[in-house]
Design a protein around this nucleic acid. Structure first.
Lengths: 147, 147
DNA sequence: TATTGTTATACTCTATAACTATA
DNA sequence: TATAGTTATAGAGTATAACAATA
C-alpha cells in the first residue's frame, strides 16, 4: 500500500535542504559501491589527497578535507594499520608526520577509484556532461566560502 | 603561517565529493545560524513537513525525510517534550500517530525560518536567482533517484 | 608562545534486530 | 501476515578541552 509523496513545504526552495538530500543519496550509493573493500568516503578522501601530495603533513590533509586534527588521528592509524599509508617523521619538522601511499595503498586506491567512477556514472546517468560541469562549478563556489 | 591549499587530485571531478563539501559548509553555517534556538537541521525538517501536512503520520514524515522509523521516535519525543509538536492517536488507525504543530511550534518554526532565509542568503550571496534555480533543479534530479 | 599530533570525551546521525499493538 | 511505533544497541562523524613534544 504505497502512499502519495508528502508536500515538503518551505523546504522546497532551500538549497541547504536539497544539498543535504542529494549528498545523502550519493553517500548511500557510495557506501554500497564500496561493499567488501572496507573503505569509506573519508578514508578514500585521505588517500586521494596523499596521492596528489606525496609527503604531505597529517594536519594539512585534515585542513584540506575539513577534518579536525583530533579526528585525523584515528583515521590515519586505521590507514597505517591497514598498510595503505606510510607515516614518517617530517624531515623539516619533527613534530609533524609526512604521509605517503604504500604500493598496497596505491593499488587499493586504483581499485576503489574504478568503483567510484561506476558509482558516479550510475548516479548521473541522466545528466549531460555540460550539466555535470555546471553542477561542479556551482558546488565549488559554495565550498569556496571562507570557514 | 598559512600554507597554500593542497591539490585534491582525483576528487576534483567527483560530484559526490563536491556535494559532500558543499553540504557540509551549509550544515556548519546552518548550525551557527540556529545558535541559541536549540533547533537542528533534522528537527526543522520535521516541523516543516508537519506544517505542510497537518495530521500527517510519524512514519510518513520519516519516509519523506529519509529517516528510519526507529530513529524517528527520539526526534518526535524531543519535539513533543519541547511543546512544539502535538502527537495524537490517528483517528483511522490506532497504531499510528497523527502529528500537528502546536502554536508554540508554529512560532518557533517562523522564527527559525527567518534565520534560515538569512543563512541561505548569506551562503548564496554570489549567486543569481537563475543560478539558484539551476542548482535546485539539478539537485532535485539526484534526489529523485529511486532508493 | 604557537603549532603538531595525541588522548579523552560527548553528542548527533544512522543502521539493524527484536518486540508490542493493532490492522 | 503485515504495518506503526518502540526499545536496545552499535558504528560512524564531528566537536571541545587539555596535554606532550617541538618550533
Amino acid at each position: 500500500m504505497s502512499r502519495k509523496p508528502l508536500a515538503i513545504g518551505t523546504l522546497s526552495h532551500l538549497i541547504g535542504y536539497h544539498l543535504r538530500r542529494a549528498s545523502g543519496a550519493f553517500a548511500l550509493d557510495f557506501h554500497e559501491a564500496m561493499a567488501g573493500t572496507g573503505m569509506r568516503q573519508v578514508l578514500l578522501g585521505i588517500l586521494a589527497i596523499v596521492e596528489a601530495n606525496p609527503g604531505v603533513n597529517q594536519g594539512a590533509v585534515g585542513t584540506a578535507l575539513g577534518i579536525k586534527r583530533a579526528n585525523m588521528v584515528a583515521l590515519i592509524n586505521e590507514l597505517v594499520d591497514a598498510g595503505l599509508l606510510a607515516r614518517a617523521v617530517a624531515p623539516d619538522d619533527r613534530r609533524a608526520f609526512s604521509l605517503t601511499l604504500t604500493s598496497v595503498g596505491r593499488e587499493r586506491l586504483t581499485e576503489c577509484t574504478a568503483r567510484i567512477e561506476a558509482h558516479e556514472a550510475r548516479m548521473l546517468d541522466q545528466f549531460t556532461n555540460a550539466e555535470r560541469q555546471t553542477l561542479i562549478a556551482l558546488l565549488a563556489r559554495i565550498e569556496a566560502r571562507k570557514p
